[in-house]
Design a protein around this nucleic acid. Structure first.
Length: 431
RNA sequence: GGAACGGUGGCAGAGCGGACAAAUGCAGCCGCCUUGAAAGCGGCCGGCUCACAAGGCCCGGGGGUUCGAAUCCCUCCCGUUCCGCCA
């Protein structure tokens, strides 16, 4: 959520920043919010005045009763009762206006960072590291799509996954299942030097999913368990961000680094039928997320740290990759600044987004009410949140199949993963 | 799922219609004392809104009763213990 006070004191800066997202309707919503806030403040001051008077009268009633002056008490009570009716009226208007304002604010996206590049869509995302174009120099035996490779090796059984769960579910088996698990272990172990490992719940409350920004706007994209008012997490970002919701941390605890493996659930409401082959897009997948809470001052360098760590994992596997920065027109709802890491998959002949690393400024922190206190200071400040996929399993899995295929059809297991695969160094066709 | 008891400030824990933002203890901060520290003494010591004013709001959430609610009523949520079920 954007700071309402900023809206009040410097609406122009918010307007200019939001305009960079290139969606004119956002500016209309912004104006509506500003107007509602103004209304709210007026109602508040009026209502508080009445309340002050009622409080004062009530004290006098108590005093009169103690003094035994019942006649005076009756009079004061009558006056207070009348005021109370007016207050009730104002309180109702307050609630109504506040609800409207909140609804708009919850759906208004974050302002982009000054460093974020301008652009209208994903076509404008600059490549900041690695090749602009897809590499051409791949031998024919690596120009095979991973679903064909996997079928040959018997490591992917999506037909049976569909039998169990319907379209867009995957099932790995044998060395394929091992590979998924190995990737998670690898990602966790490589970040254990600085990140506390968490095993969070995969089902969370509405409040938890609202804090990170998935709700209320993107309810269609998440799996809901309505009977129990719970949601399946689309990413471990959700539970990790809300771990310290409602708490006040000490500045000395920041930056606070957490990581978690979790399954991720996505309805993919808008993309049914797209990229559905093999492991490219599915309703459930595994991911290791890295996360940090920080002060605004620490955030820019923490963002780079997270990005470097995500890059190191992909680099460590030996996969060809590039890093792009997300432009203002393509940026997610909660994002302030964001990078993607893409791996080249020669079989599919495409770049696959395997990691996304983002800084959310105080947008999520305010929604989750995560605050910190500076040493020697009285007040509190909203914490900044940052997170990144350390490693999203399915697409990396696919890229490994396609990049490390040998002429004989077998797939070489990256060296760093072998300890997690019971020493297996090569996945060969059965029989 | 059933029963009982609970949910108050960083923690522990009183208060159970009026002078309560809320005793007390611990922790924390400042000062005195001390070569330094401990002890002792004095003071401070929750959050939000707001102009770190006034005023207002917050005693799990929401609603109600009342001139007035931490305190009474309703409801929901959460916790503990026992029973049931269960990996």
């Amino acid at each position: 959520m954007i700071d309402v006070r900023l809206l009040r004191h410097d609406p122009e800066s918010v307007r200019v920043a939001l305009a960079r997202r290139g969606k004119p309707e956002l500016l209309q919503q912004l104006d509506a919010a500003i107007a509602l806030d103004e209304q709210l403040r007026q109602i508040t001051s009026e209502r508080d005045g009445i309340r002050a008077r009622v409080n004062e009268l009530s004290k006098q009633v108590g005093q009169a009763r103690r003094d035994g002056d019942n006649a005076a008490a009756e009079l004061l009570q009558a006056e207070s009762r009348t005021l109370g009716d007016g207050e009730k009226n104002l309180a109702e208007r307050f609630d109504a206006v506040q609800a409207q304002l909140r609804e708009i604010m919850l759906r208004l996206p974050n302002t982009p960072s000054a460093e974020a590049p301008d652009g209208a869509s994903d076509h404008d995302n600059p490549v900041i590291k690695g090749p602009e174009q897809m590499p051409a120099s791949f031998p024919d035996h690596r120009r095979v799509a991973h679903w064909d490779i996997a079928a040959e090796l018997g490591v992917l059984d999506n037909e049976r996954a569909v039998k169990l769960s319907g379209a867009m579910f995957t099932m790995q088996r044998g060395p394929g299942a091992q590979l998924s698990r190995a990737l998670c272990q690898y990602a966790l172990d490589k970040n254990a030097d600085a990140f506390e490992e968490i095993r969070p719940p995969s089902l969370v409350t509405t409040a938890t999913l609202t804090a990170t920004g998935q709700l209320p706007k993107f309810a269609e994209d998440a799996y809901a368990i309505e009977r129990d008012d719970l949601w399946c997490i689309p990413t471990a970002e959700a539970p990790l961000t809300s771990m310290y919701a409602g708490e006040i941390l000490d500045e000395s605890q920041l930056p606070l680094r957490l990581m978690a493996y979790s399954p991720c659930y996505r309805r993919e409401a808008g993309s049914a039928g797209r990229d559905t082959r093999g492991m490219l897009r599915s309703h459930e997948f595994d991911k290791v997320e890295i996360f940090a809470l920080s002060t605004p001052e620490q955030a820019p360098s923490t963002l780079i740290e997270l990005r470097d760590r995500a890059e190191a994992l992909i680099g460590g596997l030996g996969l060809p990759y590039r890093i792009i920065e997300i432009c203002t027109g393509d940026m997610g709802q909660s994002h302030h600044r964001s990078f993607d890491i893409e791996v080249y998959a020669p079989g599919c002949d495409t770049w696959l987004e395997v990691s996304s690393v983002s800084w959310f400024s105080d947008y999520q922190g305010r929604r989750a009410d995560i605050r910190y206190r500076r040493a020697g200071e009285k007040g509190t400040h909203i914490a900044n949140t940052l997170n990144g996929s350390a490693l999203a399993v399915p697409r990396v899995w696919a890229a490994i199949m396609e990049n490390f295929r040998e002429p004989d059809g077998s797939v070489i297991v990256p060296e760093v993963l072998r300890p997690y695969m019971r020493g297996l160094d090569r996945i060969s066709p059965k029989g």
